[in-house]
Design a protein around this nucleic acid. Structure first.
Length: 495
RNA sequence: GGUCCCGUGGUAGAGUGGCUAUACAGAGCUCUGCAAAAGCUCGUACAUCGGUUCAAAUCCGGUCGGGACCUCCA
């Protein structure tokens, strides 16, 4: 199926036509590893994960998916410096070697990041590569030399800056984000950078070393400029080195449109001479909590571990994130998270019911193929797939999936229809990744509970209702629910 | 100061001129000794004011409210 995506470059939903026959090249801006990711960050990673899954499962493409790890930037340098008050014991001993501290610090948060994204359903094997910025310093320096050589950058006071004014004479600047430089807001942020650049719209490609900071040697135009890369240069250099330019899809949060992506694009055009870094630029909207931007001061700031502490299953968070379209703001509330969990469970129960029909263990009875059974309404699934192909419309797809589930009567299914449903549902789960297709494993029930339940079943058979109800209460007090069937009962942990 | 987005039922969230979104929660019913689970049914929601139109949640304008971005934040 043709996949359509909203492209920030054209501000339109466009059909994707991959540039290469063999695979779709996709680059996602990854985390800056200086802290635990929060649920807003996770939305971006889940979104980008679902895009690549749709490309594979619905589009039928091979995908080379790259996500970078930013392990060098101002905050990292600050927080990993010797004597930092945010240094964690697990990072090991802080030393006098700034580079070594930086490495210990970032590796710690990189590991935590990987754990977190796996928790919310990403599969590390899906990545073609997860490059660290510090491992591509050479490529970045090469790109910077090329940009300087092309006269789109200048050296000033030990640093290298991109010259937007010069660049604009040959290329368009502001393709992803129309900036209005006449009306730059007055404020401290513009002057926050202590480095010397000629124009406020210029940005650093290379930042000269400051005392105590980690640095890399850099020779350019016969000068020695020890220092470190600017923020934007890594993504330009790594997308070029690993995937080759132009790529098909570049993703990130809306806030990255400007300056990060705009500057990446300018660096690629100005340095590599390509006309585009990427055909598609896809940006996800932010997540809000109780209608407000997440912020620590408002007390509505959550990391994944905060939610896990509250007893929330990370996969329910994944599902809750997919309940909204990626280009809409998502209002995260605990009530909606609870609703998401119940909704996910509903489909999971359906899958388990269908599995029991397909393997003949259903207690509802299985129909023969010859018996006139109503065929499952597969048109809903077709619509669901179309919704995914249409700019990754997960909420519409889930609505169709729910309608499909509601249209199927388990008791009317043949084993063959059940198998057909399962193979269809598996395709959707390749995208959503929130359900399991293993048979409903019997949860281990403690012997004492089983004994009580057996006793109750006997009492019930004798129509001794008061004893039966007493035992049910006792079982309930110990955390289990009894559900009576026709010839047997089931035990489930109480919710 | 500039640019832009949004305001849908208790909650979340689709829908962009006339046709049931969907899910969760809630109410009623069926089943059940009673429950639980499951199934069925239901609610007459589109911030507000005005305009366009045979017809507006949907288009246009005003108002109110929320939010984002405007140099390193996903």
């Amino acid at each position: 199926m043709i996949i359509k995506l909203y492209n920030t470059l054209t501000r339109e939903v466009e059909p994707l036509t991959p540039l290469r026959k063999e695979y779709v090249a996709m680059y996602s801006c990854g985390p800056t590893v200086y802290n635990y990711v929060h649920i807003g960050n996770l939305r971006a990673f889940v979104m980008t994960d679902v895009i690549q899954r749709v490309l594979k499962a619905i589009g039928g493409y091979n995908v080379r998916w790259v996500m970078n790890i930013t392990d060098i930037d101002d905050k990292i340098i600050h927080d990993s410096a010797a004597g930092s008050n945010v240094w964690q014991e697990e990072m090991g001993a802080s030393s006098s070697d700034a580079k070594q501290n930086l490495r210990a610090f970032t590796r710690f948060y990189e590991d935590e990041f990987l754990k977190d994204i796996v928790s919310v359903g990403l599969d590390i094997n899906h990545f073609y590569k997860m490059p660290r910025a510090t491992e591509y310093i050479g490529e970045m320096q090469e790109l910077i030399r090329a940009i300087v050589k092309n006269k789109f950058a200048y050296i000033s006071d030990g640093s290298v800056y991109f010259d937007v004014t010069a660049y604009e004479k040959s290329y368009a600047y502001g393709r992803l984000f129309q900036i209005d430089r006449e009306n730059f807001r007055e404020g401290v942020r513009i002057d926050a950078d202590e480095y010397d650049r000629e124009n406020v719209s210029d940005f650093a490609l290379w930042k000269g070393k400051k005392p105590g900071e980690p640095f890399w040697e850099f020779e350019i135009e016969g000068q020695q400029l020890p220092g470190r890369p600017g923020w934007h240069i890594e993504c330009s250099a790594m997308s070029h080195a690993i995937l080759g330019l132009p790529i098909d899809i570049h993703t990130g949060g809306v806030d990255l449109r400007f300056p990060h992506h705009e500057d990446e694009l300018a660096q690629c055009c100005g340095g590599y001479g390509v006309s585009d870094q990427s055909s598609f630029w896809v940006h996800n909207e932010h997540l809000e909590v109780e209608g407000k931007k997440m912020s620590k001061s408002l007390g509505n700031f959550f990391t994944l571990r905060d939610l896990i502490k509250l007893g929330i299953d990370p996969i329910d968070l994944r599902f809750a994130l997919l309940l909204a379209h990626y280009r809409s703001k998502l209002n995260f509330t605990f009530e909606s998270l609870k609703a998401a969990a119940a909704s996910r469970k509903r489909i999971q129960e359906f899958i388990w019911d269908v599995i029991s029909v397909s393997n003949g263990t259903s207690t509802d009875g299985v129909k023969n193929e010859s018996e006139s059974v109503s065929a499952p309404s597969f048109q809903y699934l077709k619509k669901a797939a179309e919704a995914l192909a249409d700019d990754i419309h997960t909420p519409r797809a889930l609505a169709e999936l729910n309608t499909f589930v509601g249209s199927v009567s388990i008791g009317e299914l043949s084993a063959q229809s059940a198998s057909a449903i399962l193979s269809e549902m598996k395709i959707f789960n390749e995208v959503f990744g929130v359900w399991t297709f293993s048979p409903h494993s019997a949860i281990e029930v403690p012997t004492e509970i089983v004994l009580l339940a057996e006793k109750r079943w006997e009492a019930r058979k004798m129509k001794n209702w008061s004893e039966s109800d007493r035992l049910r209460d006792e079982i309930a007090n110990r955390g289990w629910t009894v559900m009576d069937g026709k010839d047997s009962y089931e035990l489930e942990p109480r919710q």
